[in-house]
Design a protein around this nucleic acid. Structure first.
Lengths: 143, 143
DNA sequence: TATAATGTTTCCAGTTGCTGGAAGGTCAAG
DNA sequence: CTTGACCTTCCAGCAACTGGAAACATTATA
């Protein structure tokens, strides 16, 4: 299987498949006499695995870790669960953030007449944060 | 006001403040005799504006656009509302994505015993997408 | 007043996860 | 034999910063 066939089956762009072996996320595939990459079923399965894991928002490094567990007969499901649970918490956190963002922005948008006049509660709201608005309390940050 | 004071008030890292004038997002500040950047109230207000807009998820380019409207006496609130409404739709879309991600991952996590044995529905679910799961239908993509 | 600590400047490089493009080799069809 | 679709490598760039080096300025302390 040449790279474009493998990429097609895995649902990834060819460039990305090449990239994944460049960075050693998936093992370097066999090469044909002319130097073409050649993918077998196991290799394609790993590509699918990575695509799915990336869609779930796992970082490439997390994918590397998961892929290591994926191919490990002596893995414990606890190891996997730990990683997935952490990711789940991140997702939940992001959801909360998005929710408060959405609420505040929706409030500003609904307060704006959206006509040809210059008065605009959205701009006002951006420069004068409402109490409790994101960033209204913080004076410094590092991370 | 030196850069660190301005950054402190605006709630931004010093590096970021410098970066914002490097890319021309905020106007180049005045300089002291020794070449130190000097920020007045108006400049700080713009920094706050940008920080808040970034926190709302507006891209730097959108911030540029909003900042142009912010300083424009002849702006129409409709222009602002258009940008903010688009952003609001993006937030809502992201929320939907996160929700389905969360649901599927939570399902996999809850199905995993998380013990010392290798059987793991999470890994299985990553390589064998459930019907209707993200990516189960797509064979190609570009954007 | 000397010196040390902190603040500021510029510039360059690295981050994450790809994506685009150029220059060139390969392969199957017509 | 040529065309066109593949494939290869390498290099550059995207967003939006962040880190660090080298050098100058200001300020605090001894």
């Amino acid at each position: 299987m040449n790279i474009s066939a493998a990429a097609g089956v895995a649902g990834l762009p060819v460039k990305t498949v090449r990239y994944y072996s460049d960075i050693g996320l998936v093992p370097a595939p066999a090469r044909s006499a002319a130097g073409y990459r050649s993918y077998d079923e196991a290799a394609v399965r790993k590509l699918v695995f990575v695509r799915r894991a990336r869609e779930f928002g796992f970082s490439v490094e997390e994918c590397r870790e998961l892929l290591g567990l994926y191919g490990n007969r002596h893995r414990s499901s606890a190891d996997v669960k730990r990683i997935a649970t952490r990711r789940l918490a991140e997702i939940a956190e992001k959801q909360r953030e998005l929710q408060s963002l959405h609420d505040e922005l929706a409030h500003l948008v609904s307060a704006c007449r959206g006509d040809r006049r210059p008065e605009c509660p959205i701009l006002d709201g951006l420069v004068n944060p409402a109490p409790g608005a994101p960033g209204a309390w913080r004076r410094r940050r590092k991370a």
